[in-house]
């Protein structure tokens, strides 16, 4: 009951709370921080000059198709797939940056389509893209700015910035301009920014892209040792199979917008290696597509 009392405020305004009856189900759902039902994204493009006879003709490209996903609190879930599989589109949809075409999703119990503000207060997006910071500002000034966007009061923000800088071991470099940082330091500042508002879910899109092996090892340690230990949920989109195998509790393999397999690595692959399993799945899917 103590657990239910603790989680009840989180679910008070939630879609799940609206739609599910019964305390047992309520308690069970409280452990799910992410749930999607047939989440689909179709991009509609006009053919334009490639079809001079009918330039207004529409072409529909399905980037993500019917994704059904459940992720529990504290889980590290890997989204695997080749380039163009739809990992980034799915991640951006779950971060409210792209509107789904069909389907529903709940993030920490909040409806992705209707409660975007509340969803955003529960998540952090950490991408490999370095240009998400102001390069002429110092690391601390950047964090100060993003803390304000998170609505963190000034005094609390100053304290929180000191804490997160310590966590990512960037205290000494905090007052240097962002443009002077190495790739690894920039990535650590990305983590620091993600930690600012103490979110429930960390979405990481290709987090180790461009990092050297030592920095990669540090990041993996951070994900497993710090985030997972603190009960945070991490969704990692990657095409590095070894990375997924090493840090993820469960993985989902996406190919051409569809989630073709999901589960714990060992359960999925059996005696085969993840690389072999992945290659077979990709080849099998391509053959089936060509046949049909």
């Amino acid at each position: 009951m103590r657990f239910l009392r603790r989680t009840a405020p989180i679910l008070k305004d939630s879609l799940i709370c609206d739609e599910v009856c019964g305390m047992l189900e309520y308690a069970h759902m409280a452990d799910l921080v992410l749930e999607t039902h047939n989440l689909t994204k179709e991009f509609i493009r006009r053919k334009g000059l490639s079809s001079p006879r009918n330039p207004l003709e529409k072409k529909v490209f399905t980037a993500v198709r019917d994704i059904n996903l459940s992720v529990e609190r504290g889980e590290i879930f890997g989204l695997l797939g080749p380039n163009g599989a739809g990992k980034t589109t799915l991640t951006k949809m779950l971060c409210t940056l792209i509107l789904p075409s069909r389907g529903t999703a709940a993030v920490c119990g909040f409806n992705l389509a209707k409660q975007q503000g509340k969803v955003k207060s529960k998540i952090a997006l950490i991408s490999s893209e370095e240009r998400t910071f102001y390069w002429r500002l110092t690391g601390r000034q950047n964090l100060d700015f993003f803390a304000a966007l998170h609505g963190i009061p000034k005094k609390l923000a100053a304290r929180r910035i000191v804490e997160v800088l310590e966590i990512v071991e960037m205290t000494d470099a905090a007052d240097r301009r962002f443009q002077e940082y190495s790739t690894g330091m920039k990535q650590r500042m990305g983590l620091a920014r993600g930690l600012l508002a103490d979110p429930e879910i960390f979405f990481m899109d290709e987090p180790t892209k461009g990092l050297d092996p030592i920095a990669t090892w540090h990041l993996h340690e951070f994900i497993r040792g710090t985030l997972a230990a603190a009960g945070k949920t991490v969704i990692v989109a990657t095409h590095h199979l070894a990375e997924a195998e090493q840090i993820c509790d469960r993985i989902g393999i996406m190919i051409a917008g569809e989630m073709l397999a999901s589960g714990p690595v060992k359960e999925l692959t059996g005696d085969a290696s993840l690389a072999d399993f992945f290659r077979n799945l990709v080849e099998q899917t391509m053959v089936e597509r060509l046949d049909s």
Partner: peptide, 18 residues
């Protein structure tokens, strides 16, 4: 162009306020 818009839009602050 700077690439900061997406990082801003993942925060709870509304785009109109930004």
């Amino acid at each position: 162009m700077l690439g900061t818009l997406e990082a801003m839009l993942v925060t709870p602050t509304r785009l109109s306020n930004i």
